[in-house]
């Protein structure tokens, strides 16, 4: 299946000379939830803004459903919904008026039944006659989602959906993304919360200083996350791993004072049992032992700092 979004060699250098994006290449599959993970200032918002037509790129191309975002902007923009990061400042129109405005602005005929459904799904129907300035922070964010969904997009960008939102609202946002997944919309969200990417996304891309440094299936990332290490403090230091233990994935640490065994927690046989037995038979004694687990955060920090 052809990807719904293709980014090729995308560059962005601002007038100030700051290079926000460097040769970005990315494919997004239809119906997936993709999390773009990166620290502040990594280029997440710039990337989204270019795709949506708010910022001009300085090189490369982007296609949505096969259409070019510059040449065929009417086609691409009518397929995209954008939920911006910043909560916009207070406005005086009502919830109902603003979702209607969004829908018709994108060229869709009025459809009260559809908009009612969107507002009900996002728990905003009761507030339809309220002015925007009377809404709470969480409602405003949901309203931005409702506005973005009002023209029935096939791709939805959520830029930092939970930035500056309290725990309860974050939970609500996660439920909203789950609801979006059920509707079949392709969702691309940016975040700097790792747990959020972990919880919601099918695939995770890591961006840092304008470069995509990793794109991986979440399960594969989790597999890396699922690796554990058993560290044995040895009574007598070793100069090398004994040949008889070559079958195990072993390495030496602390100048031979510890033996490190890496294993998968998810596999049925961790091999710890037989390793300890074999160690005993080989006459290797240890004084202490502990296990460590690398978190997604560790992987992320490794990638970003490395």
């Amino acid at each position: 299946m052809a990807p719904i979004l293709t980014v090729k060699n995308l560059d962005k250098t601002y007038e100030s000379g700051f290079q926000a994006l460097k040769d970005i290449n990315l494919n997004i599959e239809k119906g997936e939830i993709f999390a773009l993970l990166g620290p502040n200032g990594a280029g997440k918002t710039t990337l989204i803004s270019i795709i949506c037509g708010i910022v001009n790129s300085t090189g490369g191309s982007v296609t949505v459903d096969g259409y070019d975002i510059v040449r065929d902007y009417r086609h691409t923009r009518s397929r995209i919904g954008l939920v911006p990061q910043e909560l916009t400042r207070d406005a005086f129109e009502t919830v109902w008026a603003t979702v209607n405005f969004s829908r018709t602005l994108f060229g869709k005929p009025r459809d009260d039944a559809y908009l009612e459904k969107v507002l009900r799904d996002l728990s905003l129907w009761d507030k339809r006659n309220n002015q925007l300035r009377t809404l709470s922070g969480g409602m405003k964010r949901r309203l931005l989602i409702a506005k973005a969904l009002s023209h029935e997009p096939s791709v939805l960008f959520l830029d930092e959906p939970t930035a500056g939102v309290d725990v309860e609202l974050r939970q609500g946002m996660w439920e909203t993304v789950e609801y979006l997944r059920e509707t079949g919309v392709t969702v691309i969200l940016t975040t700097h919360y790792i747990e959020e990417a972990e919880l919601m996304a099918d695939r995770i891309g890591v961006i840092n200083q304008g470069e995509i440094i990793l794109v991986e299936n979440k399960r594969q990332l989790m597999k890396k996350l699922g690796q554990k290490q058993l560290v044995l403090q040895l009574r007598e230091p070793l100069s090398s791993v004994p040949a008889g233990l070559a079958a195990y994935s072993l390495s030496l640490g602390d100048n031979g004072e510890s033996l490190i065994y890496t294993y998968q927690t998810q596999s049925a046989q961790t091999g710890i049992d037989s390793l300890l037995q074999d160690l005993g038979e080989a006459g290797i004694r240890f004084t202490d032992l502990h296990t460590t687990q690398s978190s997604l955060e560790d992987i992320f920090l490794d990638l970003v700092n490395g």
């Binding site: 949506c52 037509g53 708010i54 902007y73 009417r74 086609h75 923009r77 009518s78 995209i80 954008l82 911006p84 910043e86 916009t88 400042r89 207070d90 406005a91 969004s102 602005l105 994108f106 060229g107 506005k147």
Partner: peptide, 15 residues
């Protein structure tokens, strides 16, 4: 432009 809502017009399929 002041409220930030301009994003919507800029990202809409309008010439």
């Amino acid at each position: 432009r002041f409220t930030g809502n301009i994003y919507e017009v800029l990202s809409a399929p309008v010439s």
